[in-house]
Amino acid sequence: MSILSTHNLCKTYGLGETKVEALKQVSILVSKGEFVSVIGPSGSGKSTLLNMIGALDQPTSGTVTIDGREVRSMKEEELSVFRRRNIGFIFQSFNLIPELNVEENMVLPILLDYQKPDQHYINELLGILGLTERKHHLPSQLSGGQQQRVAIGRALATKPAIILADEPTGNLDSKNSQDVMNLLKLSVDQYHQTVIMITHNHSYASFADRVFQVNDGMVRELGASKR
């Protein structure tokens, strides 16, 4: 079954002469447990698509349905709850809370949902991410690769329906990028997560089950790769 679907999704910014059509009639389907990558040049509309899918921004027209629920029909408060339970974000610039240590950063989304973290699961994640030794460190005491692993941990902690990764390797060297890609792949294989990743790097795009190319606001599937 599809965990994410968009139907005739459009997003326009500005009015009149300055009007920009960032997304034009985008309709895609993503099934549970799929690893999807989105590629495209700067300004093609990748980030806009991600904002729509991540329920961060409302579309001008068209629908986004995640796990059977239509994003547009939800009110602000509902949307926050929906986001914290169903979507995990990974950013290019890590975006960890500088005042919280590794473990605290990871459990924060769970706490925001007024749940008690499953310590066993968190420890397991820390182990997989290679951060067990570092769980009491602050982000400023970690390398970029380590910080991004914490961000992956934070995204996985709530077991969301979709993980959205926006250029997760953009700020990393090749060794760390490789690690991050392996971890994302692992989360798809081991935890049956759905991952949607934006990337510039075509070789990392090939890690994915499917690849979408965005060009001038239009999305085209490049056809199933390897698998």
């Binding site: 986001r83 914290r84 974000f89 925001l112």
Partner: peptide, 12 residues
């Protein structure tokens, strides 16, 4: 903004 991203509601 970041907190809102990882699921904090306005109220929170």
């Amino acid at each position: 903004g970041l907190l809102r991203c990882i699921g904090a509601s306005k109220k929170q």
